[in-house]
């Protein structure tokens, strides 16, 4: 039995690329959208920065623990989607140039990355990050959710993406509603599309950003199974729903999310995703038959080895390594129940 009904309410788009008929805005979503609108506008001003010296220059990709190394040179016909828990990403981390240099170099490997653990009372963290990302002429932008948490200590989710490669649907940005209050930090979701010469054939996908509560993992990963189904029921229909983040659960602890028939996840086996290399809590999860855009390439970006850091230096960056997966930029043929629904959209 579905114990809870999640809803991922969307807001009316203002120039969204899909221009759907949108339902009601919830207060939480409205707050997030206002913040997103404000920050994105500010952020656009940051994209005209005079290109500077790339902080990632000269470093060799030799991550021994990566299943496959993700390189600075991104493929034109593929995108790399990442997830990165940047532990306590706030003022103190911004003030550490060495740590920020590594963070920037990692994010530049990705076309889009879901970030967890933005922890700051101020709103400058993502603008400052994007300013550093774009210092080499890159054109990254970001979306950020509201502050979430059960105590006065809160976190925000964010998406950082290369605007030359990825665009988003403004009407799709939502913090999921959780009326049964099962999740400490409700997932932050948005729909994206690759930028191609043929937008109607481009890969579209939802990213569902999550950081579970380590004390309530079993309940929360079960709730994520419901959350996944709720996103699937959104209008317009989207067959590619990618749940990614710090699940605080290994592949054997994915509960209802992992039990959905056909669901697959990239981090498997004895690959660890934390800096201390003893846990595999970060992952990228999606429905295999639908998300045929996945190329099979994925990895853990071990920045300790990649950038030849000591363990202490690496821990100053984060206690988690980024996890990434590669996808084709073109939408794959629809499978099963999605074929009819999405076929009607076009």
């Amino acid at each position: 039995m579905l114990t809870v009904i999640f809803t991922a309410l969307s807001g009316g788009g203002v120039g969204g690329y899909l221009n759907p008929n949108m339902p009601i805005l919830g207060p939480l979503v409205q707050g997030a959208r206002e913040q997103v609108t404000s920050l994105v506008q500010n952020n656009e001003n940051l994209q005209n920065i005079v290109p500077g010296q790339g902080v990632g220059a000269g470093l060799s990709p030799n991550a021994a623990n990566s299943v496959q190394a993700v390189t600075n040179k991104r493929s034109p016909d593929k995108i790399t989607i990442g997830t990165f828990n940047i532990q306590v990403f706030g003022q103190s981390k911004l003030a550490k140039p060495d740590a920020m240099s590594v963070i920037v170099q990692c994010i530049r490997r990705f076309d889009i990355v879901a970030i967890q653990e933005v922890r700051a009372k101020g709103d400058n963290v993502l603008p400052d990050l994007v300013k550093q990302l774009n210092a080499d002429g890159s054109r990254y932008s970001f979306l950020i959710g509201p502050r979430l948490g059960r105590s006065v200590s809160t976190e925000q989710y964010a998406f950082v993406f290369d605007t030359t490669r990825i665009e988003y649907d403004p009407s799709s940005i939502a913090t999921m509603k959780d009326p049964a209050d099962l999740l400490h930090r409700e997932p932050y979701a948005a729909r994206f599309r690759t930028r191609t010469s043929s937008p109607d054939k481009a890969f579209t996908f939802y990213l569902v950003n999550i950081h579970t509560d380590p004390d309530e993992v079993k309940q929360e990963v079960n709730a994520l199974g419901d959350a996944y189904q709720a996103i699937l029921s959104q209008s317009p229909p989207e067959d590619d729903v990618i749940v990614l983040g710090d699940l605080n659960a290994s592949e054997k602890q994915l509960g209802k999310l992992g039990q959905i028939k056909g669901m697959r996840w990239v981090v498997t086996g004895d690959v660890m995703t934390n800096t201390r290399q003893n846990k595999a809590y970060d992952n990228i999860v999606f429905y295999g038959p639908s998300t045929a855009e996945f190329t099979g390439s994925w990895g853990v970006l071990n920045f300790e080895q990649e950038f030849q850091l000591t363990r202490d230096q690496a821990l100053k960056v984060s206690d988690h390594f980024p996890v990434w997966a590669e996808f084709q930029i073109w939408e794959a043929p629809k499978q099963g129940i999605f074929a009819g629904r999405l076929g009607n959209r076009r």
């Binding site: 006065v152 100053k316 206690d319």
Partner: peptide, 30 residues
Amino acid sequence: CQAGEGVAEAAVDLVKACGDEESVQVWAVA
């Protein structure tokens, strides 16, 4: 926060630090 094993000995200190100002609190909570 970055000490790893052994930090549990500081459990009481860290719980108290949660009541400190934000710059301390965020790391204590983490």
